[in-house]
Amino acid sequence: MIFDARRLWLLQLRLECKALDSDGRLVRIEGPRPDEIATCSIARFHDGYRVTFAATADDDLVDRVAALPEEMFFEDSMRAASAMGQGRAMNITKCSTYVFPEVLRPVDPAIVRKGYEEFAITVDDREVSWASSSRSNSEAAELWVWTDENARRSGYGQQVSKAWASEVTGEGRVAFYSHLDDNQPCRRLASKLGVVHLFGLANFTIEG
């Protein structure tokens, strides 16, 4: 199955209560649980990059970013931040975003529904793993999953994640999964879920 990663990037922006204005700048839109808007955000797709700025970013910063090679934002983030900020402190986050490719129907009887888009798995009458939506709207939802430290590497996170994805994709909506690039447990989970990588993000926010 082929996904339009750039279209899904825009969809995830809406899920985070963001959108592009007429000048291509990131602005807040209405919705629950909005994410912070980075001063500069670079999306790395399989076929190229897309650089966006907050509406408050000044033109000098935009010009400095335009002079830098896009790969620097991912491969040498500290150097890129130094060139962008010119002495101003920058907060840097890098993450990866995926999409579930199909409706997944859970069959494990240990999985219990806790609520809308919320599932848990029980072992010996004890809940050991949970999956729910970190954010959700009429178009899409994004997975939040947690497993008790003593129950990890047993496949429980996969099972509840698939139950969650089954509900979301079964309604014809897009099921996203994202994680910070330095979160190795989440990266391992992504490799086991069969999700499709859409894009990486490098976010730079001027502090203060």
Rank of each mutant, 00 (worst) to 15 (best):
2 I>E: 11
4 D>V: 00
9 W>T: 09
9 W>I: 02
11 L>Y: 08
14 R>S: 03
15 L>T: 08
25 R>S: 12
29 I>Q: 07
32 P>Q: 09
34 P>A: 05
35 D>L: 15
36 E>A: 14
41 S>F: 05
43 A>S: 13
44 R>M: 05
45 F>P: 10
46 H>V: 12
48 G>C: 13
48 G>D: 13
48 G>T: 05
49 Y>T: 07
50 R>S: 13
52 T>Y: 04
54 A>V: 06
54 A>H: 14
61 L>G: 02
62 V>Y: 07
63 D>G: 08
67 A>M: 10
69 P>F: 06
73 F>V: 03
76 D>A: 14
77 S>D: 10
78 M>I: 13
80 A>Y: 02
82 S>Q: 14
86 Q>T: 08
86 Q>G: 03
87 G>I: 12
87 G>D: 07
88 R>N: 09
88 R>F: 10
90 M>E: 08
91 N>I: 08
93 T>F: 06
95 C>N: 11
97 T>C: 15
98 Y>H: 14
101 P>E: 03
103 V>L: 15
104 L>Y: 04
104 L>K: 06
105 R>Y: 05
105 R>A: 14
107 V>R: 09
113 R>I: 05
115 G>C: 01
116 Y>K: 14
116 Y>E: 15
118 E>K: 14
119 F>Q: 03
120 A>M: 02
129 S>D: 03
130 W>N: 00
131 A>R: 04
131 A>Y: 10
132 S>T: 14
137 N>C: 10
147 T>H: 01
148 D>V: 07
152 R>P: 06
153 R>V: 05
154 S>R: 11
155 G>H: 03
158 Q>S: 14
160 V>D: 00
167 E>R: 10
167 E>W: 02
167 E>A: 11
169 T>Y: 07
169 T>H: 03
172 G>F: 07
174 V>M: 08
177 Y>Q: 12
177 Y>E: 07
177 Y>H: 12
179 H>A: 06
180 L>P: 04
181 D>T: 09
181 D>L: 11
184 Q>W: 10
185 P>E: 09
187 R>A: 14
192 K>S: 11
196 V>A: 02
197 H>D: 11
202 A>H: 00
207 E>D: 07
207 E>T: 12
207 E>S: 11
